[in-house]
């Protein structure tokens, strides 16, 4: 057992967990942040993607201990009050989700994609960059549209800030 201290969605938190605890379980079980999902056992589906220190990673493949001292952002932490993050809004407006299970990971990965590529995204790049996120419902068509849409919106909102 270890005491893990980290910052989650801007709040300092701590939890006593077994050393074998994965970050995703710390988030879901100890912190009740159940928006981060588990969809596979092999680090492929991306339903568990969160940001650690600003980078999108698979929280099912990170020990809680590895994240100690880090800044973790989950799907619950990206909107500002009632104001959705542009990526969240774009997923809704483009019907980029159906059952919603892969959606948090998709959104967290997609924000990272836009952060890395800025406005220089095209459809092919988005499709390649989504390699680590599996969706069974949408055929990705509207997810790709949403990410491209959000890339524009994020540029605008960054310019405004």
């Amino acid at each position: 057992m270890s005491t893990i201290k980290l910052t989650v969605n801007g709040k300092a938190v701590s939890a006593d967990v077994e050393d074998r605890t994965l970050l995703v379980h710390l988030l879901r079980e100890n912190l009740n942040l159940t928006g981060t999902h588990v969809g596979c056992d092999t680090s492929q589906c991306g339903a568990c993607v969160v940001h650690i220190d600003g980078r999108a990673v698979k929280s099912c493949t990170v020990l809680a201990g590895q994240a100690a001292g880090s800044n973790v952002t989950t799907i619950e932490g990206i909107s500002k009050g009632d104001e959705l993050h542009p990526m969240q809004a774009a997923f809704r407006d483009n019907h980029g989700l159906q059952c919603g299970y892969c959606t948090p990971g998709m959104i967290m990965s997609s924000i990272d994609i836009v952060n890395r590529h800025g406005g220089k995204l095209d459809e092919e790049t988005v499709r390649q960059e989504l390699e680590g996120n599996i969706c069974r419902c949408t055929g990705y068509h509207n997810i790709v549209k949403a990410v491209l849409d959000a890339a524009g919106r994020m540029k605008v909102s960054q310019a405004a800030e």
Partner: peptide, 15 residues
């Protein structure tokens, strides 16, 4: 646009 989306895109779905 879908009514149910808000809870899914904010991580508030209940599975």
């Amino acid at each position: 646009v879908r009514k149910e989306d808000r809870r899914f895109i904010t991580g508030k779905g209940r599975y």
